[in-house]
Design a protein around this nucleic acid. Structure first.
Lengths: 174, 174
DNA sequence: CCCGATTAGTAAGGCCCCTAACTAGTGCAC
DNA sequence: GTGCACTAGTTAGGGGCCTTACTAATCGGG
């Protein structure tokens, strides 16, 4: 068995690729990869945390949206299209989310008074209880996640993320 | 039909929720949501871009890893476990990725000379051609995505993302 | 030696979300 | 008023990745 050569890091492989592909912007790619990896890790951690309460990101987002709306606008009830938009999922996906939330007794669908194509979605007391039980812990987790950043750093981070967002259309181009 | 009340923004709902849940750190949550949303958008855009070449993030990551390794370390071939780790997917998922990549003629599996439990994975000429055809455009896209950020801002962004990463263990805690 | 612990890869089944195609209700132009 | 474009929601089917439970090969201590 021969002695192993020194391990080659991801960064070194990237540098060598950059020699072959002049279009490669190494600091940009490095930043992009960092962002995608953290996204993935954070997303997984988020899912795992919600899964303890039988929720997914989509299900949770819907419930919190309904909860915060009912708190601030007196249970006016939302329609699936509004929920889909504010949860960033397709309307078809929202149908599925609402189906399972209803089956689990967390939401109810009620006829829309004015337009028979739609209905309004409402939290059940069971859902309210679930949220009030879990949100304190959830918010504590998020606070712990962000604890390493000062207020100023958070502002900067949001700013920089917003700048990356402005690059998205160019990324998507033809 | 009554006049609609002024629309309530996500930020306002957040503020009111914060009154009810003292654990809620609004700048932290706001930052976290911003991050999760951008993650989602970027991830979708990335997937859409790769899909034009018949690839997913996982498939692409595997191919690029193999490509850059063969460039720098003379086609030594990688084992599935290494690929799973460097692609951040489970070994089971890697089996699936390799199955379809092999079916599409992009990789080959070859017996491992020393350990019959494993095999080594190699790019086919077809895969090499695919990558060399698509990478220039791909790298151009990534460069365009990151163009709005100066070198210094990229450094700062990576730093701040790294800080968020350090908060992940605390997020996951019991 | 050889038998248990470990490690590699795989199979089965599930969840989440997607797109595309469909159904039903609305409302406006004529 | 009727027809047609539009809108809301649903259905069907698919892709990606996961976890859990498995099989096969290797290694190492008695």
């Amino acid at each position: 068995m021969s002695v192993s050569p020194p391990p080659i890091t991801r960064f070194e492989r990237l540098q060598r690729l950059a020699k072959r592909f002049p279009q490669l912007d190494s600091s940009g790619l490095e930043t992009c990869i960092t962002l995608l990896r953290l996204s993935n890790d954070l997303s997984d951690a988020y899912d795992a945390s919600l899964a303890r309460h039988g929720l997914s990101k989509g299900r949770f987002t819907v419930l919190v949206r309904l909860y915060s709306t009912s708190e601030t606008e007196g249970g006016r009830g939302l329609i699936p299209a509004e929920l889909a938009e504010s949860s960033c999922v397709s309307r078809a996906t929202m149908t599925g989310l609402l189906d399972t939330l209803e089956k689990d007794g967390l939401i109810s669908r009620e006829d829309h008074p004015e337009d028979r194509r739609m209905y309004t979605v409402h939290l059940t007391p069971k859902a309210r209880q679930l949220l009030e039980g879990m949100l304190p812990e959830h918010y504590r987790r998020v606070a712990a996640l962000m604890a390493p950043l000062s207020e100023q750093e958070r502002d900067t981070l949001r700013e920089l993320l917003a700048k990356v967002s402005t690059g998205l259309p160019a990324f998507r181009e033809p």
